[in-house]
Amino acid sequence: MEKITNFFKTFLLFELVKGMALTGRYFFARKITVQYPEEKTPQSFRFRGLHAQRRYANGEERCIGCKLCEAICPALAIKIEIAEREDGTRRTTQYDIDLYKCIFCGFCEESCPVDAIVETRMFEYHGEKPGDLYYTKTMLLALGDKYEEQIARDRAADAKYR
């Protein structure tokens, strides 16, 4: 019986019809292709993109240099040096994230006791030469200032699940 079916399949182009049927189905289906960069896919408020360092409303940086993010980072991408600031508070003198090493796991964000280091929805960044993707404290703080509104909205949306 199997032999007979195979015999007819060889010249009736059954596979072709089957394949074209699939193509046909998608031809008439609703299109999901996104015309990036004109169009963009929707993002979760938990999206883990480029890092940023946040400030409080009074302009004071949030980071207290506890080094928990540095300790937990599985890719060893974070480097922190700390010192006592003139006002006696504990602050970072250096806070670098090497985005070449970063695997965007979000552990740094999870471990931060003061929500200082966060991952933004920003994923469109690039570096043209080695070192371009080595983000320093000033760069991270600038990103935080730039995206603060969005960051705050995302944290608020996520708060009820925590």
Binding site: G65, C66, K67, A71, I82, A83, E84, R90
Partner: peptide, 9 residues
Amino acid sequence: FRYTARNWE
């Protein structure tokens, strides 16, 4: 030693 390092480092 104040605020110079964490002990796990």
